[in-house]
């Protein structure tokens, strides 16, 4: 049995908006093992974003259990949460969220600058370089985001999420801003990283993404309505080849 990375039990989160209380998550439970590649699906309003915020330690649940890598986050302070985010979680966003006017490698170095580990400038540079190598961007170190294509920018963001060797990578609609071809390229990259043993959680509302992942959790109105293993995982790299070649 492999290690449990994420353990959620009867998790509830509600918001008070004026006089109304909105229950975004109405008690959900699941756990994720090391090395899994999971898609979390749901339409807007399903509680998907709230779950992502909680999973990403940006928000804390009202009740229930959330443990990441054995640490319960319910009682943690803001600064302790920031440390968990830094050490255990790699974020990837729909709109990349790279720092403008900052080179690719400096963007990747960013999480290391907030690390509590004391690293020399050289070590930081080496780690960032290795992360960019993993996403095949080692030839674009000194390019700023405006000089990179969308797919390249997202790969810089992926490198940034990898650099601190997190226990889980959280991708929020990571292909949402990309065309089909580039999406498949990114998915192929995720599959590659997953093969190397990375645990990846992919939040999306596009059903075809789920065909590339080993497990799918479907949310609706704050409940989990489906949680199934995909026995027929497609290869994104093959899907890429199958795409009709575009004519310029």
């Amino acid at each position: 049995m492999s290690k449990t990375i994420i353990k959620i039990e009867d998790l509830k989160r509600s918001f008070t908006m004026g006089e109304e209380t909105v229950h975004a998550l109405k008690g959900i439970s699941f756990s994720i093992q090391e090395g899994e590649f999971v898609t979390i699906m749901g339409t807007s309003g399903s509680g998907k974003s709230t779950l992502l915020n909680v999973l990403g330690c940006l928000d804390q649940p009202n009740s229930g259990v959330y443990q990441i890598d054995g640490v319960s986050i319910k009682e943690l302070t803001k600064n302790e949460l920031a440390r968990i985010r830094n050490e255990k979680i790699g974020f990837i966003f729909q709109s990349y969220n790279l720092l403008a006017r900052t080179t690719a490698i400096e963007n990747v170095e960013l999480p290391l600058l907030y690390s509590t580990k004391t690293l020399t400038a050289e070590e930081i540079h080496d780690k960032a370089f290795k992360a960019l190598e993993q996403v095949n961007l080692s030839d674009r170190l000194d390019h700023t985001p405006s000089q990179l294509s969308g797919g390249q920018q997202q790969r810089v963001a992926i490198a940034r999420s990898l650099v601190n060797e997190p226990v889980v990578i959280l991708a929020d609609e990571a292909t949402g801003n990309l065309d089909t071809r580039t999406s498949y390229e990114i998915m192929a990259l995720f599959q590659e990283l997953n093969k190397q043993g990375k645990t990846i959680l992919f939040v999306t509302h596009e059903p075809d993404i789920a065909t590339f992942t080993g497990r799918t959790i479907v949310l609706k109105d704050g409940h989990i309505i489906q949680d199934y293993i995909n026995n027929n995982v497609q290869s994104a790299a093959e899907a890429l080849l199958a795409l009709p070649i575009e004519e310029d």
Binding site: A82, N86, L110, P111, Y114, R160
Partner: peptide
């Protein structure tokens, strides 16, 4: 604001 959000997401604390 977004940059601040990102810095916080990757582990920047308020004091940073």
């Amino acid at each position: 604001t977004r940059e601040i959000g990102l810095r916080m997401a990757v582990g920047g604390q308020g004091s940073d």
